[in-house]
Design a protein around this nucleic acid. Structure first.
Lengths: 175, 175
DNA sequence: TACATTTGTAAGTGATTACTCACTTTTATG
DNA sequence: CATAAAAGTGAGTAATCACTTACAAATGTA
């Protein structure tokens, strides 16, 4: 990975996340990354290839986080850790998550294998906690996470996260 | 509103929702709507104008639904009605909602005034129900709605909605 | 019927798009 | 140091983009 290759990925991620994949031209990426346009195609074959390189790079970080949660033994602590996830997104990772959330709505699927895995972990935890319908509970939890991440990515995480986290956790402490 | 004008709006909505605004060309819209490309610009000035016409048309339906909920007097029934909302989206309206959800992530804002209004209604209801932090509760509810709508629009509403709705409602029945 | 307005078309327009290619510069390796 | 491979450039390319324009057909109105 050369310096220029890194510059391309970094500025492309920012532009794809903020302005959208189709609204971002390879010319603009090159200009902002201080790189000739041809270099993008030398390294990533085409625009789609650049996108995939960005996604692959981010996937590794996510994988690690999710696997750490799966290692937790206490099911109650697992649910709590999952609830906290969206609120722990580092500002440096915002562009990556924003990109993922925009791509979700695209025809072509760039599947995030991680989320499905996390939901089986959640289902398992809910089962151990004696929930009546663990699958439905996991689905609801996924909805909450999805909504929370959306709010955080769009509005920023400036409001009091603790109050929100507390309100959510309370919904899983009555049983 | 002529027949061809209606055809343009209908096919543009479908393409914008499924493939994205920037990924959809006016030429493709015209071809699929069996209309000359020039007619789009005759009626809607430019591509952006076509998008706004689509959004304005849909806004009216939403407004009516939200105002009906605000009329409910029992605060508990208000929360329940709001929870049910995403699950009541008619398949005919999927494209419109899908378009709204993709536009959320765009730089340029096309604000949906309705949601903010609905959240003040929810905050008010939570207050009457004696919740400790009504604002936070409304925010969490918005997250759940947002996540629920996302799942429904992306995966379809084929799974057992009743079980999910029940699981969510239970989280608001303990107080 | 006369004629003005609206609706619709087809063939353009320049600008921009993703991508190529011939070429130069830098780096790695023996 | 020699030389091959990799990295990088910049000026192309055809295709597509949103949009215009000159004109024809349909419709409304008196």
């Amino acid at each position: 990975m050369t310096i220029k290759q890194d510059q391309i990925i970094k500025t492309a991620l920012e532009l794809f996340a903020k302005e959208g994949f189709h609204a971002t031209s390879t010319g603009k990426i090159a200009r902002m990354a201080n790189v000739s346009e041809g270099l993008i195609f030398r390294h990533f074959v085409n625009k789609e290839g650049l996108l995939e390189a960005i996604l692959n790079q981010g996937q590794q970080t996510i994988q690690a986080i999710f696997e750490n949660i799966a290692k937790i033994e206490d099911p109650k602590k697992i649910i709590e850790a999952i609830i906290e996830l969206p609120f722990m997104i580092h500002p440096d990772e915002h562009n990556y998550w924003r990109l993922l959330y925009t791509l979700k709505w695209q025809q072509k699927k760039y599947d995030r294998v991680g989320v499905d895995f996390l939901m089986t972990v959640a289902t398992d935890a809910f089962e151990k906690l004696g929930y009546e319908n663990p699958t439905a509970e996991a689905e609801v939890l996924e909805m909450i996470l999805d909504g929370a991440a959306t709010v955080i990515l769009l509005k920023g995480n400036r409001y009091e996260s603790e109050v929100i986290i507390k309100a959510i956790k309370e919904k899983y402490s009555k049983q």
